[in-house]
Design a protein around this nucleic acid. Sequence first.
RNA 1: GGAGACGUCGCAUAGUCCGGCCGAGUGCACCACCCUGCUAAGGUGGAGUCCCCGUAAGGGGACCAGGGGUUCAAAUCCCCUCGUCUCCGCCA
Length: 422
Amino acid sequence: MIDPLLLRENPDLVKRSQEARGESTAFVDDARAADGARRAAIAAFESLRAEQNAFGKQVAKAPKEEKAALVAQAQELAARVKEASSAAADAEAAFTTAVQRIGNVVIDGVPAGGEDDYDVLREVGDIPAFGFEPRDHLELGELLDAIDMQRGAKVSGARFHYLKGVGARLELALMTMGLDKAIGAGFTPLITPTLVRPEIMQGTGFLGAHAEEIYHLPDDDLYLTGTSEVALAGYHADEILDLSNGPLRYAGWSTCYRREAGSHGRDTRGIIRVHQFNKLEMFSYVDPADAEAEHERLLGWQEDMLQALGLAYRVIDTAAGDLGSSAARKYDVEAWVPTQEAYRELTSTSNCTTFQARRLDIRHRTESGKTAPVATLNGTLATTRWIVAILETHQQADGSVVVPEALRGYLGGLSVLEPVVR
RNA sequence: GGAGACGUCGCAUAGUCCGGCCGAGUGCACCACCCUGCUAAGGUGGAGUCCCCGUAAGGGGACCAGGGGUUCAAAUCCCCUCGUCUCCGCCA
């Protein structure tokens, strides 16, 4: 949720943000009108309530013989209070609905427009060249007996897979390498719940435009998380944090579930787009003044990972229209996937400024002693999908795959993954 | 799955039976000051969160797990939900 004060005092800024996102500026006017109506309704209720409170004290103190008359009077007042109270509650709800239609105010410099309007910030690493026809990750995965899509489909359906043998080890190695990276940077490891309550899913902003992407268990009214961000953001919901010693940083390790509704036919081959995968996610709670610097730090750690794995990649500054409602800026790191001759997203890091924290009621105490919403940021350090880029980038003519040096320690010293003869 | 107990301001608790004098007492912790010849003890005062009006000083409202109800009036009575604990049963 955006800052109601900003809406009141600088609606034009909010409108410009909406325009950059390609969304309606009318939402801003609607929300402002709802804000005015809400405040008027609250004022009306509160003055009536004050009257009732004062009157109630008189009734309590009054001698017996006068009580009956006073109570009769109070009854009438009570009816008016009740009416004003529900009017105020309605106005409050209307305001909340209106303000929640507005996305986070994008940061200056974020390119306007939609999915294809990103800025490329930099390209790093050499695009691999092969003296042979490179195999795609699934062909390699099957040669190595590392990925089994057929059995995944048999057991769970399309877009499910088994990681087997070196495939399973590779994923654990990546995740563990990411975890070590995070721990080195001062993150606290956290293995998170993957089923969460509606209010947490709502609070993190995933029940809006992306609702159809999310698995829901109606019998228990719980949602399966599509990213550990949900549980990591919910972790400190309704709390006042102490940030006087710097940011609170968590590295969440969890399985993620996505319905992939609306992506039928896209990335149907292999493990690029699957319903269930694992992810190691950084999550920071910071003083809003430090948010943009933290964002750069998260991006830096992500790039360290890709560089250590010998992957060619580029960093893009995602356009406003492709941000999602909570983010004010988002950088994606995309690795080169040789057989697709394209960069594909491996990580994403978002600065949600105070937007997410406001909804989840996460605050910190400022130097003046007042409370204020914190800023939240998240960023990926490893996921199942990375296996795609690693296998394809480091493959050799015989179908074997050279293990990047940085990963060998996590694979018991294994330096080459060899095809399995069956 | 069955039975029961409980959920109060950072922590620990009082208040709930008998509704109004309870936004709420006490202890610890905390902050300021005072006192004390020293890492202890004592004294005085302060201190919750959110919202509304106001430039401000200040005023007002809400909040006793959450939601609803009864009532002129609810921490207190009733209902539902969530959570914690204990016992029994069951289980990968």
